[in-house]
């Protein structure tokens, strides 16, 4: 049974398990981040319009031997970042 992830877990997972998380979200382009709005520990996934339904409600990661489940909040607001 996976544990619920806290904020620190989400922050670490995004840095240490990045590739594994991306593999679980089958979309063509996305940004992942951890919102700091105090509305709960989660991953914010910005995706293109039309791909929101392909984002799972949570992703599974393992940190320090602990199986964790992280909620994913999908928003169809993907906009490409450009180095400028």
């Amino acid at each position: 049974m996976a544990e619920a992830a806290n904020y620190l877990d989400v922050q670490r997972a995004l840095q240490e398990n990045t590739a594994g998380i991306i593999e679980q979200i089958p979309v063509s382009a996305l940004h992942l981040s951890m919102p700091v709005d105090g509305r709960g520990a989660r991953i914010h996934a910005s995706v293109k319009a039309g791909e929101k339904a392909r984002v799972p409600s949570h992703v599974d990661v393992e940190l320090d031997g602990r199986a964790l489940s992280i909620p994913v909040e999908a928003v169809a607001d993907y906009s490409e970042f450009k180095a400028y």
Binding site: V10, Q11, L14, Q15, T18, I21, I22, A29, L30, H31, L32, S33, M34, P35, V36, D37, H44, E80, F81, K82, A83
Partner: peptide
């Protein structure tokens, strides 16, 4: 600062580059 630990691709003249642990 609205986001931390950001993972994203960024468009450069030479191609796409993927970043992690960025500040939004």
């Amino acid at each position: 600062v609205t986001q931390i630990a950001v993972v994203t691709d960024v468009r450069y003249g030479a191609g796409l580059a993927r970043f992690r642990n960025q500040i939004g």
